[in-house]
Protein backbone atom coordinates (compact mmCIF):
# COMPACT_ATOMS: atom_id res chain seq x y z
CA UNK A 1 0.00 0.00 0.00
CA UNK A 2 1.57 3.30 -1.02
CA UNK A 3 2.39 5.83 1.69
CA UNK A 4 -0.09 8.73 1.70
CA UNK A 5 1.45 12.03 0.72
CA UNK A 6 0.46 15.49 1.89
CA UNK A 7 -1.75 17.48 -0.40
CA UNK A 8 0.56 19.72 -2.43
CA UNK A 9 -1.63 22.76 -1.88
CA UNK A 10 -1.29 22.61 1.86
CA UNK A 11 1.09 24.98 3.58
CA UNK A 12 4.40 23.43 4.46
CA UNK A 13 4.14 24.71 7.99
CA UNK A 14 1.37 25.21 10.47
CA UNK A 15 -0.40 28.53 10.57
CA UNK A 16 1.35 31.16 12.65
CA UNK A 17 -0.07 34.64 12.97
CA UNK A 18 1.98 37.57 14.23
CA UNK A 19 1.99 37.73 18.00
CA UNK A 20 -0.26 40.32 19.55
CA UNK A 21 0.73 41.30 23.05
CA UNK A 22 -2.08 40.46 25.47
CA UNK A 23 -4.33 38.90 22.88
CA UNK A 24 -3.80 35.26 23.56
CA UNK A 25 -7.33 33.99 23.57
CA UNK A 26 -10.08 32.43 21.57
CA UNK A 27 -10.46 35.50 19.39
CA UNK A 28 -6.84 35.11 18.33
CA UNK A 29 -7.21 31.57 17.06
CA UNK A 30 -6.21 31.23 13.42
CA UNK A 31 -8.63 29.61 11.01
CA UNK A 32 -8.48 25.84 11.05
CA UNK A 33 -10.47 22.89 9.84
CA UNK A 34 -11.79 20.16 12.07
CA UNK A 35 -12.00 16.60 10.87
CA UNK A 36 -13.50 13.67 12.66
CA UNK A 37 -12.16 10.15 12.31
CA UNK A 38 -13.82 6.86 13.08
CA UNK A 39 -10.67 4.76 13.17
CA UNK A 40 -6.99 5.11 13.90
CA UNK A 41 -6.27 4.43 10.24
CA UNK A 42 -8.53 7.25 9.14
CA UNK A 43 -7.01 9.58 11.68
CA UNK A 44 -3.54 8.59 10.53
CA UNK A 45 -4.51 9.23 6.93
CA UNK A 46 -5.88 12.68 7.76
CA UNK A 47 -2.76 13.50 9.71
CA UNK A 48 -0.65 12.64 6.72
CA UNK A 49 -2.80 14.05 3.95
CA UNK A 50 -3.81 17.25 5.72
CA UNK A 51 -0.89 17.58 8.11
CA UNK A 52 -3.57 17.48 10.75
CA UNK A 53 -2.82 17.38 14.45
CA UNK A 54 -4.75 14.87 16.55
CA UNK A 55 -7.02 16.30 19.22
CA UNK A 56 -7.91 14.22 22.25
CA UNK A 57 -9.06 16.18 25.32
CA UNK A 58 -8.12 19.33 23.46
CA UNK A 59 -7.07 21.51 26.37
CA UNK A 60 -3.49 22.11 25.31
CA UNK A 61 -4.02 22.07 21.57
CA UNK A 62 -6.80 24.66 21.74
CA UNK A 63 -4.88 26.79 24.18
CA UNK A 64 -1.94 26.66 21.82
CA UNK A 65 -4.17 27.90 19.02
CA UNK A 66 -5.13 30.84 21.21
CA UNK A 67 -1.62 32.18 20.82
CA UNK A 68 -2.40 32.66 17.13
CA UNK A 69 -0.33 29.72 15.97
CA UNK A 70 -1.14 26.11 15.37
CA UNK A 71 -2.14 23.52 12.83
CA UNK A 72 -4.40 24.38 9.96
CA UNK A 73 -6.15 21.04 10.35
CA UNK A 74 -7.23 19.09 13.40
CA UNK A 75 -8.49 15.57 13.57
CA UNK A 76 -10.68 14.71 16.51
CA UNK A 77 -10.02 11.31 18.02
CA UNK A 78 -13.11 11.37 20.15
CA UNK A 79 -15.08 9.04 17.91
CA UNK A 80 -12.21 6.76 16.97
CA UNK A 81 -13.21 3.21 17.80
CA UNK A 82 -11.27 1.94 20.77
CA UNK A 83 -9.55 5.25 21.49
CA UNK A 84 -11.03 5.50 24.96
CA UNK A 85 -10.57 1.90 25.98
CA UNK A 86 -8.31 0.39 28.61
CA UNK A 87 -7.23 -3.09 27.62
CA UNK A 88 -4.73 -5.74 28.62
CA UNK A 89 -2.34 -7.21 26.09
CA UNK A 90 0.90 -9.11 26.45
CA UNK A 91 0.82 -8.52 30.18
CA UNK A 92 0.68 -4.76 29.70
CA UNK A 93 -2.12 -2.34 30.32
CA UNK A 94 -2.97 -0.44 27.12
CA UNK A 95 -4.49 3.00 27.48
CA UNK A 96 -6.11 4.46 24.40
CA UNK A 97 -5.29 8.06 23.51
CA UNK A 98 -8.73 9.24 24.67
CA UNK A 99 -8.34 7.75 28.15
CA UNK A 100 -8.65 10.58 30.61
CA UNK A 101 -6.79 10.98 33.87
CA UNK A 102 -9.97 10.16 35.71
CA UNK A 103 -10.79 7.26 33.45
CA UNK A 104 -7.45 5.68 34.21
CA UNK A 105 -7.37 6.39 37.94
CA UNK A 106 -10.83 4.94 38.48
CA UNK A 107 -10.55 2.04 36.07
CA UNK A 108 -11.00 -1.34 37.76
CA UNK A 109 -8.40 -2.80 35.42
CA UNK A 110 -5.87 -0.12 36.31
CA UNK A 111 -6.55 -0.46 40.00
CA UNK A 112 -6.08 -4.19 39.78
CA UNK A 113 -3.06 -4.31 37.49
CA UNK A 114 -1.13 -1.15 38.35
CA UNK A 115 -2.58 -0.14 41.71
CA UNK A 116 0.29 2.09 42.78
CA UNK A 117 0.19 4.08 39.56
CA UNK A 118 -3.59 4.36 39.59
CA UNK A 119 -3.52 5.58 43.18
CA UNK A 120 -0.94 8.25 42.42
CA UNK A 121 -2.82 9.27 39.30
CA UNK A 122 -5.90 10.14 41.31
CA UNK A 123 -3.89 12.96 42.88
CA UNK A 124 -2.69 14.76 39.79
CA UNK A 125 -4.41 17.70 38.09
CA UNK A 126 -7.89 18.59 39.33
CA UNK A 127 -11.44 17.36 39.06
CA UNK A 128 -12.15 19.32 35.88
CA UNK A 129 -8.90 18.56 34.12
CA UNK A 130 -9.01 14.91 35.17
CA UNK A 131 -12.40 14.56 33.54
CA UNK A 132 -11.42 16.21 30.28
CA UNK A 133 -7.68 15.90 29.90
CA UNK A 134 -6.17 12.75 28.49
CA UNK A 135 -3.01 11.01 29.54
CA UNK A 136 -1.75 10.96 25.99
CA UNK A 137 -2.42 14.66 25.60
CA UNK A 138 -0.62 15.43 28.82
CA UNK A 139 2.32 13.36 27.68
CA UNK A 140 2.60 14.95 24.26
CA UNK A 141 1.83 18.54 25.23
CA UNK A 142 5.51 19.13 25.83
CA UNK A 143 4.88 21.11 29.01
CA UNK A 144 7.78 20.62 31.43
CA UNK A 145 5.63 20.79 34.54
CA UNK A 146 3.15 18.18 33.34
CA UNK A 147 3.20 14.95 35.22
CA UNK A 148 2.30 12.07 32.93
CA UNK A 149 5.81 11.82 31.55
CA UNK A 150 7.31 11.70 35.04
CA UNK A 151 5.08 8.93 36.26
CA UNK A 152 5.02 6.90 33.06
CA UNK A 153 8.79 7.08 32.76
CA UNK A 154 9.08 5.85 36.33
CA UNK A 155 7.06 2.74 35.52
CA UNK A 156 8.87 2.19 32.21
CA UNK A 157 5.83 2.79 30.05
CA UNK A 158 5.99 3.14 26.28
CA UNK A 159 3.88 4.46 23.43
CA UNK A 160 2.41 2.45 20.60
CA UNK A 161 1.99 4.60 17.54
CA UNK A 162 1.40 4.77 13.85
CA UNK A 163 4.19 6.45 11.94
CA UNK A 164 3.47 8.78 9.01
CA UNK A 165 3.85 5.87 6.62
CA UNK A 166 1.27 3.87 8.56
CA UNK A 167 3.71 1.47 10.12
CA UNK A 168 3.58 0.70 13.81
CA UNK A 169 6.22 1.92 16.19
CA UNK A 170 6.92 1.86 19.88
CA UNK A 171 8.76 4.48 21.96
CA UNK A 172 9.76 4.29 25.61
CA UNK A 173 8.28 7.27 27.42
CA UNK A 174 11.63 7.85 29.06
CA UNK A 175 13.16 8.41 25.64
CA UNK A 176 10.60 10.85 24.34
CA UNK A 177 11.92 14.06 22.90
CA UNK A 178 10.16 17.38 22.74
CA UNK A 179 7.62 18.58 20.19
CA UNK A 180 10.34 20.62 18.54
CA UNK A 181 13.29 18.38 19.28
CA UNK A 182 14.96 15.82 17.11
CA UNK A 183 14.04 12.67 19.00
CA UNK A 184 10.35 12.93 18.57
CA UNK A 185 7.43 10.74 17.78
CA UNK A 186 5.26 13.83 17.57
CA UNK A 187 4.39 13.24 13.96
CA UNK A 188 3.12 9.82 14.99
CA UNK A 189 -0.39 8.99 16.02
CA UNK A 190 -0.36 7.46 19.46
CA UNK A 191 -2.68 4.49 19.51
CA UNK A 192 -1.98 3.36 23.04
CA UNK A 193 0.12 3.98 26.10
CA UNK A 194 1.57 0.69 27.18
CA UNK A 195 2.03 0.35 30.94
CA UNK A 196 3.84 -2.76 32.17
CA UNK A 197 1.93 -4.57 34.85
CA UNK A 198 5.14 -5.28 36.68
CA UNK A 199 4.78 -5.39 40.45
CA UNK A 200 6.40 -2.27 41.78
CA UNK A 201 6.27 0.24 44.54
CA UNK A 202 5.82 3.82 43.54
CA UNK A 203 6.08 7.06 45.46
CA UNK A 204 5.54 10.52 44.08
CA UNK A 205 6.02 14.02 45.42
CA UNK A 206 4.31 16.89 43.61
CA UNK A 207 4.37 19.33 46.51
CA UNK A 208 6.83 21.68 44.80
CA UNK A 209 5.12 21.79 41.43
CA UNK A 210 5.50 23.50 39.05
CA UNK A 211 9.12 23.96 40.14
CA UNK A 212 9.68 20.22 40.11
CA UNK A 213 8.15 16.87 40.86
CA UNK A 214 9.84 13.60 41.64
CA UNK A 215 8.74 10.01 41.23
CA UNK A 216 10.57 6.99 42.61
CA UNK A 217 9.75 3.43 41.60
CA UNK A 218 11.14 0.24 43.05
CA UNK A 219 10.83 -3.02 41.18
CA UNK A 220 11.96 -6.37 42.45
CA UNK A 221 11.05 -8.73 39.61
CA UNK A 222 14.56 -9.82 38.68
CA UNK A 223 16.76 -7.46 40.58
CA UNK A 224 15.94 -4.66 42.91
CA UNK A 225 15.88 -1.62 40.63
CA UNK A 226 15.26 1.94 41.62
CA UNK A 227 14.06 4.56 39.16
CA UNK A 228 14.17 8.21 40.05
CA UNK A 229 12.43 10.57 37.66
CA UNK A 230 12.63 14.32 38.04
CA UNK A 231 10.22 16.51 36.14
CA UNK A 232 9.96 20.24 35.71
CA UNK A 233 13.63 21.12 35.32
CA UNK A 234 13.96 20.26 31.67
CA UNK A 235 11.60 19.96 28.75
CA UNK A 236 11.49 16.24 29.43
CA UNK A 237 11.95 14.43 32.73
CA UNK A 238 15.36 13.23 33.80
CA UNK A 239 15.42 9.50 34.49
CA UNK A 240 17.98 7.74 36.66
CA UNK A 241 17.95 4.00 37.22
CA UNK A 242 20.14 1.78 39.32
CA UNK A 243 20.19 -1.70 40.69
CA UNK A 244 20.44 -1.58 44.45
CA UNK A 245 20.85 -4.10 47.18
CA UNK A 246 19.01 -2.15 49.83
CA UNK A 247 17.54 1.26 50.65
CA UNK A 248 19.25 1.74 53.97
CA UNK A 249 20.77 5.08 53.05
CA UNK A 250 18.19 6.83 50.90
CA UNK A 251 19.88 10.20 51.14
CA UNK A 252 23.16 8.83 49.87
CA UNK A 253 21.45 6.89 47.11
CA UNK A 254 19.47 9.92 45.95
CA UNK A 255 22.58 12.08 46.03
CA UNK A 256 24.55 9.52 44.07
CA UNK A 257 21.93 8.99 41.40
CA UNK A 258 21.26 12.67 40.97
CA UNK A 259 24.83 13.86 41.33
CA UNK A 260 25.17 14.64 37.66
CA UNK A 261 21.73 16.15 37.29
CA UNK A 262 22.11 18.68 34.49
CA UNK A 263 21.38 22.27 35.40
CA UNK A 264 17.78 23.13 34.83
CA UNK A 265 16.90 24.72 31.52
CA UNK A 266 13.27 25.49 32.27
CA UNK A 267 13.04 29.01 33.70
CA UNK A 268 12.38 29.32 37.40
CA UNK A 269 11.63 32.44 39.35
CA UNK A 270 13.51 31.39 42.43
CA UNK A 271 17.00 30.91 43.74
CA UNK A 272 19.57 29.18 41.54
CA UNK A 273 20.14 25.49 42.17
CA UNK A 274 17.12 25.26 44.45
CA UNK A 275 15.39 22.78 42.22
CA UNK A 276 18.45 20.61 41.74
CA UNK A 277 18.89 20.48 45.48
CA UNK A 278 15.24 19.71 46.05
CA UNK A 279 15.32 16.88 43.55
CA UNK A 280 17.72 15.05 45.83
CA UNK A 281 15.78 15.96 48.97
CA UNK A 282 12.48 14.75 47.60
CA UNK A 283 14.02 11.66 46.07
CA UNK A 284 15.63 10.75 49.39
CA UNK A 285 12.31 11.15 51.16
CA UNK A 286 10.53 9.01 48.62
CA UNK A 287 13.20 6.33 48.84
CA UNK A 288 12.85 6.35 52.60
CA UNK A 289 9.11 6.01 52.19
CA UNK A 290 9.58 2.99 49.94
CA UNK A 291 12.09 1.52 52.34
CA UNK A 292 9.45 1.63 55.04
Amino acid sequence: MPTPQPHPALPARPVALPTLVGHRGRHAMPPFTVHTAASFAEARRLMTLRRARPLAGGLDLLNGLKTGAGPADIVMLERVAGAATIAIADGDLLLGPMVTHDGFATSPAARARVPALAAVWSEIANLRIRAQGTIAGNLLAGMPAYEAAVLLAAVDASLDSLAPDGTSARFPVAALGTPTGAARPFDHLVTAIRVPCTPLRLAYDRSLRPALSVAVALTTRLRRTVSIVVGGLHPRPIVRRAHVSDLDAPGDLAARLLADLPLATVPFAGSPFYRERMAAVLAARLLAELAR
Binding site: R26, V34, L59, L62, Q132
Partner: peptide, 19 residues
Protein backbone atom coordinates in the same frame (compact mmCIF):
# COMPACT_ATOMS: atom_id res chain seq x y z
CA UNK B 1 -16.90 28.52 32.15
CA UNK B 2 -17.29 24.98 33.47
CA UNK B 3 -20.25 23.04 32.07
CA UNK B 4 -21.13 19.38 32.25
CA UNK B 5 -20.86 17.22 29.14
CA UNK B 6 -22.56 13.91 29.72
CA UNK B 7 -22.37 14.74 33.40
CA UNK B 8 -18.63 15.35 33.51
CA UNK B 9 -17.10 18.78 34.01
CA UNK B 10 -15.62 20.38 30.93
CA UNK B 11 -13.93 23.71 30.42
CA UNK B 12 -16.09 25.33 27.78
CA UNK B 13 -13.42 27.84 26.73
CA UNK B 14 -11.14 24.95 25.85
CA UNK B 15 -13.60 22.56 24.26
CA UNK B 16 -14.67 22.49 20.65
CA UNK B 17 -18.39 22.86 20.31
CA UNK B 18 -18.25 19.95 17.92
CA UNK B 19 -17.28 17.73 20.82
Amino acid sequence: CTVLVDGRPATACSTLALA
